[in-house]
Simulated scan of single mutants.
Amino acid sequence: FDSVLSLCRNQHRRIVLALLTEEQRSLPLNDLTKTILTYNHQTTITEASEDVITEVRRSLHHVHLPKLASAGLINYDPERQLVEPTEQLDQMQPTLSPILDADSTLEAPMEL
C-alpha cells in the first residue's frame, strides 16, 4: 500500500496509471505526453511550447516510467517508446482505483 501511495504522489504517474487502466493496452510515449499535457497542463500538444513538451517527455522517460517499471506496474520499451500495463497493474486495481478516483483533475473515462 505504501509503495502505491508513493508512486501516486506525482500527477504524471497518476495520469499514466489512470490511462493505462482505462485503455488496457500498450500506449506510445506520444499518447502519454498528449494526455499529460491535457490533464496536467490544460493544453494540447499543438498549443504547448516545445520546451513544455520536451520537459514532459524527458520526465516520463527518465523519472516516471522507470519508477513505474521498477514497481512492476508497467513495461517500458524506450527504443520503441512504448508503455504497456502488466498483470501486476491489474492486480493492484483494488488499491489503485480509490487513489485515482480521489484526484478530481482526472476525468473518467480518460481520453487520448
Rank of each mutant, 00 (worst) to 15 (best):
P94R: 13
I36W: 00
E55G: 01
E111H: 02
L5S: 15
E23K: 13
P66W: 08
N30T: 00
L112E: 01
T43R: 05
H12R: 15
P66C: 07
D31W: 02
S26P: 07
L60E: 04
D77Q: 14
R9P: 10
E47S: 12
T38V: 04
P66N: 15
L19C: 04
Q81T: 06
V63P: 06
A69K: 11
K34A: 06
I45L: 08
D101Y: 14
T86I: 06
K34N: 02
L7T: 07
Y39V: 05
D101W: 13
T105R: 12
P94C: 09
V56F: 04
H12Q: 11
G72H: 04
L89E: 11
P94K: 13
S49F: 01
P85A: 08
T44E: 04
D101T: 13
A108F: 05
T86N: 15
R80I: 03
Q81H: 01
E84D: 10
S70H: 09
L73R: 03
E79F: 07
T105L: 06
S26R: 14
A69Q: 14
Q88N: 10
L68C: 07
L82W: 11
P85M: 11
L7V: 12
E23I: 01
H62V: 01
A48P: 02
T43E: 02
D101F: 08
L73W: 05
P66Q: 13
R13K: 14
L27A: 08
L96I: 09
R14A: 10
S70Q: 10
P85N: 09
Y39M: 03
L17P: 03
L68H: 05
S49V: 04
L89K: 04
S3G: 09
D2V: 00
L100T: 07
Q11T: 12
T21C: 07
Q93W: 11
D2Q: 12
S59R: 06
E22V: 00
